[in-house]
Amino acid sequence: MIRSVLSLTPKVGASQDLVQFFEDREIPQRALATPGCLGVEVQTLLPDGGEVLVTALWTSASSYRAWLESAGRLEDGALMRPLLAGGGEVVAAARLYDIGQRAARPD
């Protein structure tokens, strides 16, 4: 399994606007519709929201690449730039981590 980690720095005071952008554009739901996406989380740094972290769990790096190439993903990046500190550049691909070991509580 692969975890993608995307760190975004919102403009001061815009962290909730950035989270709302993900909700309005249904980005997590669209990612979940990509074969191989197992889960998505959009998180804000406590206490001030100075960073928005988007993580997702994928079955493989190729499933993440399919998401990168999906319809609307480039448009999402362009539309989110005004919410990012420094005007934002192109929203890059996330860093990918291979999950070597995992522990979870049984349901």
Score class of each variant (00 low, 15 high):
M1K: 11
M1I: 09
I2V: 10
R3D: 03
V5S: 07
V5W: 11
L8T: 11
P10H: 02
K11Y: 01
V12W: 05
S15H: 14
Q16M: 09
Q16E: 14
Q16H: 05
L18C: 05
F21P: 00
F21Q: 01
D24N: 08
R25L: 06
E26S: 08
E26P: 06
I27F: 01
I27Q: 08
I27H: 06
P28E: 04
Q29T: 03
A31K: 08
A33W: 05
T34C: 12
T34F: 10
T34I: 11
P35C: 06
P35T: 01
G36H: 10
G36A: 05
L38G: 00
L38F: 09
E41T: 15
E41D: 14
V42E: 07
L45A: 15
L45I: 14
L46R: 15
P47M: 07
P47R: 12
P47G: 11
D48A: 14
G50H: 09
G50T: 11
V52L: 09
L53D: 11
T55F: 07
A56T: 15
A56F: 14
L57M: 05
T59C: 05
T59V: 15
T59G: 04
S60C: 07
A61P: 08
A61T: 14
A61F: 03
S62N: 15
S62C: 04
S62G: 12
S63T: 14
Y64L: 03
R65K: 14
A66E: 13
A66L: 05
W67F: 02
W67L: 05
L68S: 05
E69V: 03
E69Q: 13
A71R: 15
R73E: 10
R73S: 06
E75H: 07
E75Y: 01
E75W: 10
D76K: 03
D76M: 07
D76S: 14
D76T: 10
G77Q: 05
G77I: 07
A78F: 12
A78E: 13
L79G: 00
M80T: 01
M80C: 08
M80P: 03
L84Y: 01
A85R: 15
A85M: 13
G86D: 03
G88N: 00
G88R: 00
E89R: 09
V90Q: 13
V90R: 05
V90F: 03
V91P: 01
V91S: 00
V91H: 03
A92Q: 07
L96H: 07
Y97N: 04
Y97W: 11
Y97A: 02
Y97T: 02
Y97S: 00
I99K: 02
I99W: 08
G100H: 13
G100L: 15
Q101D: 11
Q101C: 11
Q101S: 13
Q101E: 14
R102H: 10
A104Y: 10
R105Q: 15
R105L: 15
R105M: 13
P106K: 14
D107I: 13
D107Q: 15
